[in-house]
Design a protein around this nucleic acid. Structure first.
Lengths: 156, 156
DNA sequence: GTACTTGCAAATCATTTGCATATGA
DNA sequence: TCATATGCAAATGATTTGCAAGTAC
């Protein structure tokens, strides 16, 4: 059965763990824990949306205007987070990527072509066939992404 | 069983049909059949690769330097072809899209993260589950795309 | 002849980079 | 202290657009 992924049960605990992992990651690489990096992680965490770097930047400016976080820092931090598999990015038809926390259970995306909204889902059957296919073709699978485009209930 | 898609059996016939469909499409929309548009379609057809607009432009310049086809025309024609579902585009992590003729049987993509090469495959099982999922979630499916990223045999 | 196309160059948009200054460990 | 980060502005790279000249129908 395919199913829509549920939200976190206990966000507080999850976030603290996420934050600690992040701090550890930074320490391991001789990188510094800065307010900007924390705010970016936190904003990403508290948003249920898949965010573009620009949207994320906007949210941060609203939340903490005094920080004057530059868009360049957002890009740099997202790149860092993606490299470390803390976030995942989705590429869209047009230009631009959208980012989401990657700590969640793996899932695929159903994208409404009208309103742009994204629904997540997981399907065990598909996952297992993906493994079979790569094996058959001699690939070492690194990652995969699947998007289904359609028109959602509300937009029909 | 997943399988790698095979090439066309009889390219000549296929191309003539493709070209006629294209001409018809243009006529229907009060658009003109130009040499540039033909060369773009033909080059796209005769390449087995997934091409970036720039790569396509290069190929055309080599084949018909006297045409002096501009990159803007390539972009404009690709947009037109994509809108009409004659070609399909793949978005990559980095920037840029790659285009391929969409007339072929539907298929998904296995992308080597080392050399960038793309292998196509089809899996009936996955296709049918995609339909089930959209139905279950009340979506009207328009399209879907699946990419598996990995390291190919040669690059391992 | 007229509307649609083209090539070119300039404009735009997302993303990246250089650099002087600021800050965490 | 001093290496790493940051903000800013300028640079880049892909794609788009305005416009005068060209071409299909």
């Amino acid at each position: 059965m395919s199913k829509v992924t549920t939200n976190f049960q206990d966000r507080t605990v999850e976030y603290e763990q996420l934050l600690n992992n992040f701090k550890e990651l930074l320490k391991k690489n001789n990188l510094k824990f800065t307010i900007q990096r924390e705010v970016i992680l936190e904003t990403l965490y508290s948003s249920d949306e898949h965010l573009t770097p620009e949207a994320l930047h906007h949210l941060i400016q609203e939340k903490q205007p005094e920080l004057k976080t530059g868009i360049a820092t957002v890009y740099r931090t997202l790149a860092l987070l993606e490299e470390s598999s803390v976030v995942t990015s989705l590429s869209f038809g047009a230009q631009g990527k959208k980012y989401e926390l990657g700590a969640k259970e793996h899932h695929d995306h159903l994208i409404c072509t009208e309103c742009g909204n994204i629904t997540e889902f997981v399907d065990k059957e598909i996952e297992s066939r993906q493994h079979m296919i790569t094996k058959e073709l001699g690939f070492k699978m690194v990652d995969h992404s699947m998007q289904i485009y359609g028109i959602c209930k509300d937009c029909q």
